[in-house]
Design a protein around this nucleic acid. Structure first.
Lengths: 286, 286
DNA sequence: TATTTCATCTGACTAAAGTCAGAGAATGCT
DNA sequence: AGCATTCTCTGACTTTAGTCAGATGAAATA
């Protein structure tokens, strides 16, 4: 059913909106090279590796295209001082002009495309595309276990703490550096390599209880059901490790989080730790 | 604003849904050939010409790809007996198998893509894509003047009459063959070569009045604002020809049509002709 | 009936995209 | 310190895709 709609849309899309990419034609550069230039412009200072992943290109092919852009004076590549195997790619001023040109072409195409619609129709289309966008992106998020000291996990933790600090009335101080937590498992959700949600479990007592820790969802991704998905994932993980009950704590000001836990079947219990930032405590049998 | 959403979606799309086309890979045939095979399977018995338009290919390239599919025993091409310049393309049984395989691959990909979403999210996505689909298709409809005896105009007229016949309580009989209407102008709206809306104007009196005739919108395209767009187009055409007023008649059972005319600023007037099927009469100053 | 126009095809190309093996430098791991 | 791994690059391809100029046969048109 949905797949029919999806496939039908796919056809419409490739025939009609796909021509947005045609705007990259007529620049005197092949499509792939323009796409690369555009990608460099979107994410200045990325590594060659990241471009390769993002555009799904052969390393040789990408390298040659970069040489071509360099020869045209559009990009520069310099070694990454933190890891000199990597090279960082940036636009030159000329490259920035070429990028701006691509932007304008793409924008013009988009304007042309929607011009025949009335104002109301344009609003409906914008709503529909926004919804589709976030759902499709949410659908393609990948959940993976990570070590809690992996760079992407550190980054997610940093953002989690930063958000607590911003939202709790008295701020938040994580205290010293991470203490190692024996038996803990952390899971990162990434979209295009960027962390978008994070969370973990650790065994608390020998009575078959696991605690859910550091549940965090990227601000741009609220409302996409990622929190619920992460929660289900962690519960399944805990069950797989033999736990029969999960508990968690949270601050009383995090209302959406509390609502989500309640929707997910968690019930309030009494304080079970001395975490000064925690005000609400939950449990759920598995 | 909308263009931002559109362009953002475009990126999400090419990265995530676009891979639906990748399902055509791994079949031992290049992507373009698979696409062609798929297109032939979707519209059995099309002409080479139609495929060329639909896939936007060079005639030589298409011809060679067809030879390749023929050599693989997947399609057959036979001359079109009604016009022996044209050739009709059909799948062989082997070709049908290969088409089914493409279908399955594409379906599987679609299922995988949306699997992580909850039921409610899948519904929301389906709604959003359905809306986006019809609006994007509506936006890319082309309006062109046609001779009222052009094949596409005849086809639209036939459907218009068929619909009247189905909807009017007493049925509808168009009478004899079309009488030539001096000074009449007809406009066809097409999407991918198919007629989706139709209408025309003809001068009625020498007092600067034009009459709108044969307004028809394809059943699958109701609610996409095509009727209103056609109406505005015809009004502009009439104004351009020096008319200062348009009139039209319609049957009382065509409620959406009447509602549309009223929304568009038409007011009811007295009967101005002896058309036995007409029960409501409208005018609008230009 | 002569001449345009149309639909399809072949030949002879060029350009773009994709593949694979391997080299060289930097870093990680034990 | 030694070996494996990672990142980027070059070289030497093959395959796809796209272009252009006709040729041929079949309709349409004057």
């Amino acid at each position: 059913m949905l797949t029919d709609v999806l496939r039908r849309f796919n056809r419409t899309y490739t025939q009609r909106i796909g021509v947005l990419d045609d705007s990259f034609l007529g620049t005197g550069r092949p499509l792939a090279v323009s796409r690369l230039l555009f990608e460099v412009g979107e994410t200045p200072g990325t590594t060659v590796r990241a471009l390769r992943d993002r555009l799904d290109l052969d390393s040789g092919q990408l390298s040659r295209m970069l040489r071509r852009l360099e020869a045209d004076g559009l990009v520069t590549t310099v070694p990454d001082e933190t890891d000199r195997r990597r090279r960082l790619v940036r636009l030159t001023p000329t490259g920035q002009d070429a990028y701006d040109d691509l932007e304008h072409r793409s924008e013009r195409r988009a304007v042309e495309l929607v011009a025949p619609l009335t104002g109301r129709q344009q609003e409906r289309l914008a709503d529909a595309l926004r919804t589709a966008d976030i759902l499709v992106r949410a659908a393609t998020v990948r959940l993976e276990e990570v070590a809690s000291d992996a760079p992407v996990a550190r980054e997610a933790t940093r953002r989690y703490f930063a958000e607590l600090d911003a939202r709790l009335p008295a701020g938040f101080d994580p205290g010293g550096p991470d203490a190692p937590e024996p038996g803990a498992t952390y899971v990162i959700a990434t979209s295009g390599g960027e962390p978008v949600a994070y969370g973990g479990i650790r065994p608390v007592l020998d009575d078959g209880t696991a605690e859910i820790k550091r549940m965090w969802v990227h601000g741009d991704w609220r409302g996409a059901g990622l929190g619920g998905r992460m929660l289900r994932h962690l519960e399944a993980l805990a069950a797989g490790q033999g736990h029969r009950r999960v508990v968690l704590d949270t601050n009383g000001t995090l209302l959406e989080a509390i609502a989500m836990y309640e929707r997910a079947g968690y019930t309030r219990i009494a304080r079970y730790n001395d975490n000064p930032y925690a005000e609400a405590f939950f449990e759920k049998p598995l």
